[in-house]
């Protein structure tokens, strides 16, 4: 059984029909990469899964449970974390407060904290800083750390490498590889070079529809398909 399945998910934002037919099967474990041009509907897909937009009834199933229409906070409590495009860091809070907020018990589990320090050693250094003062890369590390401070089954990550320096992108990739050992990641990316090293399964979305789904290996091998689906920039 797949962890998450989207069946002909349609999402309207106000009067606009943004998603027309998003159909995906996300197996458990590893990184699933969702590609697509700007404005294709990737962010809307993640927000619909999270309940931040309203997907069509019955179109989102998580571990066999229909979650379309559930409240965002209840979806989160099922074990789904969300790292939005803008990272969603609370700038007026310290790094520590950003993290402790995301714990269920209101205090840290030392083992999980140590794991975060291993993934992102820098986190320990800016622990007491106000989050607004962090650099883009540090904020992204904080956003990812916040998503894994509690055990999760699925993490939705939206374009995490956008605007980051190559060295940080590399660290981020290592972290995702490590996290995906026991947590499934649904990764939205425009940076194909980054995505192709991580993904096992992938799909391409265009104009609110999934237009291709398959394994990353096959997609990498098919230059023609890449050109037609991702445009020349890929």
């Amino acid at each position: 059984m797949s962890l998450l399945s989207l069946k002909q998910m349609k999402t309207d934002i106000g009067q606009y029909h943004v998603l027309h037919d998003v159909t995906l099967e996300l197996p458990e474990g590893g990184v699933f990469v969702l590609l697509g041009r700007n404005g294709a509907g990737k962010t809307t897909t993640l927000r619909s899964i999270m309940g931040l937009w309203q997907p069509s009834p019955g179109s989102v199933t998580f571990r066999g449970q229909d979650i379309a229409g559930m409240h965002t906070s209840d979806i989160a409590r099922l074990g789904i974390a969300y790292v939005p495009e803008n990272m969603g860091i609370f700038g007026g809070l310290t790094v520590e407060e950003n993290l402790v907020l995301a714990t269920k018990a209101g205090k840290f589990d030392q083992t999980r904290l140590n794991r975060i320090y291993e993934l992102f050693p820098a986190m320990e250094k800016f622990w007491t800083k106000q989050a607004w003062s962090l650099s883009g890369g540090q904020k992204q590390m904080l956003a990812v750390s916040r998503a894994i401070i509690e055990p999760r089954d699925l993490i939705l990550i939206d374009e995490p490498t956008k605007g980051l320096a190559p060295s940080i992108i590399h660290a981020m990739g290592e972290a995702f590889r490590e996290i995906s050992v026991d947590t499934t990641i649904l990764l939205v990316e425009q940076n194909f070079n980054f995505a192709k090293s991580l993904g096992r399964d992938m799909a391409v979305i265009d104009d609110g529809r999934v237009v291709h789904a398959g394994t990353m290996t096959d997609f990498i091998a098919n230059q023609e398909l890449q050109d037609s689906l991702l445009g020349l920039s890929a």
């Binding site: 931040l52 409240h71 989160a76 939005p84 809070l93 407060e97 907020l101 995301a102 269920k104 916040r146």
Partner: peptide, 23 residues
């Protein structure tokens, strides 16, 4: 307090607080 932390975070970004599992 934890409630205070949630309020401060909610003032900044309501959606994100909900995406972390709070009403």
């Amino acid at each position: 307090t934890r409630i205070g932390l949630l309020i401060r975070a909610g003032v900044e970004n309501r959606e994100m607080v909900e995406a972390l599992g709070f009403r």
